[in-house]
């Protein structure tokens, strides 16, 4: 891990089942964590509220569902709002889109990873967590091809390993880590 890199963002993707894992990571992250965390989780379409409140209860960092063109700031967690795709723009703002579902998902993890990879290139870390859908695999692969640092959760520690295994078939990430190791990794950035 290159200690001297100033990252523009940490992008995390996981499917609906990753809620408890994401809460655990956010509850153990140090409260002076300096990078923005951009979080895309699959969500159930008609359950609009609850997720951001649930995460905020546990998280050491404030979790927001951003508005379109909101500035991305360090030490905050940006959760893709229900029914929107979330993209990272070149000027480090969030832009939202209501376009078609991708891989049956809106938000789609592939879109968030791929736009972050385009905007942040080697100045980002992409982390792919447990999930039951292949959405996310292609996206984190793009992070890898654009020289971003990539971490895939160890499939042996995943509730459902479809997402992480699809990613591992595409490329070899910088690290394959357990949830505990992901927390340590983030806190050492």
């Amino acid at each position: 891990m290159q200690k001297n890199i100033q990252y523009k963002g940490i992008v995390i993707g996981g499917s609906a089942g990753s809620f408890s894992l994401v809460s655990k990571i956010l509850s153990q992250i140090k409260d002076d964590f300096k990078y923005p965390i951009i979080l895309c989780m699959h969500r159930l379409k008609h359950i609009r509220s609850g997720l951001v409140e649930g995460l905020n209860l546990k998280s050491n960092l404030p979790v927001v569902e951003p508005y379109d063109k909101q500035k991305i700031e360090g030490g905050k967690v940006y959760l893709a709002p229900s029914n929107y795709h979330m993209f990272v723009e070149f000027d480090a703002t969030v832009s939202l889109s209501a376009e078609d579902v991708l891989n049956h998902s809106r938000p789609s993890i592939d879109y968030t990873f791929s736009s972050a990879a385009t905007s942040f290139r080697n100045k980002m870390v992409g982390i792919l967590l447990t999930g039951a859908n292949k959405d996310g695999a292609q996206g984190i692969f793009e992070v890898h091809t654009k020289q971003g640092y990539t971490i895939v959760q160890d499939p042996n520690t995943c509730d459902v390993d479809t997402m992480t295994k699809s990613a591992l078939q595409l490329f070899s990430p910088n690290q394959v880590l357990t949830p505990e190791e992901i927390v340590v990794f983030l806190n050492n950035l």
Partner: peptide, 9 residues
């Protein structure tokens, strides 16, 4: 239009 989005479209 927003760069990243229009480029993707």
């Amino acid at each position: 239009y927003s760069d990243n989005s229009i480029q993707r479209r």
